[in-house]
Amino acid sequence: MSKLRDALDVGQFVVTGEVAPPHGTDLGAMLASVDRIAPYCHAINVTDNQGATLHLSSLAASRAVLEAGSEPIFQQTCRDRNRLALQSDLLAAWTLGLENVLIVTGDDPRGGDHPKAKGVFDLDSTQLLEVARGLNEGVDMNGAPLDGGCDFLLGAAAFPEAEPSDIQLERALQKIEAGARFFQTQAVMDVDVFAERAAVLREAGAKVIAGVLLLKSARVIRFINERLAGLMVPEHLAKRITESPNPLEEAVELATEQVVALRDVVDGVHIMPLGADEALVSIVEGAGLA
């Protein structure tokens, strides 16, 4: 009964948002955020120890989102669990009513708050997609039949604008082959370049939900350019925000323009407001999606 699946199936333009579980056990702030953005989203990603920093598990937090009446996308990284734990958590997710799963590699522990941790990576994201597809077919990764299987909507991450683009696309196509039905992408910087590459993935049968990041301040742009390798904000966008008398408003306007431009070329947008939930609401309303 995944609403996300239904919406993607009928070709509706979807909106997904994102919340982070707490560093602790108080779910209050996360659920308040869910309350604010859920009316504007088809589903909400629940991150899994994002940035390799400790948070309450995505499994429990996803269930909490579901109980709060919204639809979660359970994120699972390959960083913290071996193949037994990954399969076991996926089976658990299904019994907890979690139908959407986003499978990603996960950031390396040396960039997080537990840099002495062992990065597990027993499976990589492509292999885990294959395993999850197997669970959907009623077998574990050894091919042994399960006593009750799953029917997940499986998603993966992609970075269409990264160079070398041929290698990047080859890699994303490999994920489709492994079982990915939708992609949630890294933040779009150039809509034209993005659209051209997303078209290849859509032709291969996957739905593409484009990442839209709220570049809300000079600090955020600096952080992205310096700390998050893999996301480089081009000069003209950085200038537009930093030279604006009201960077947050300008960022909302930029994101809204991106969403409008993306409407005709992809299957949805994944809005990352970096804590500014009100901005997500403004973007969705501004783009005429509410």
């Binding site: 950031d107 990065g119 990589d124 994201s125 292999q127 970075f159």
Partner: peptide, 11 residues
Amino acid sequence: KGLLNGPCGGM
């Protein structure tokens, strides 16, 4: 990360 299939999303 010791990934057998890559690159990962950070490349």
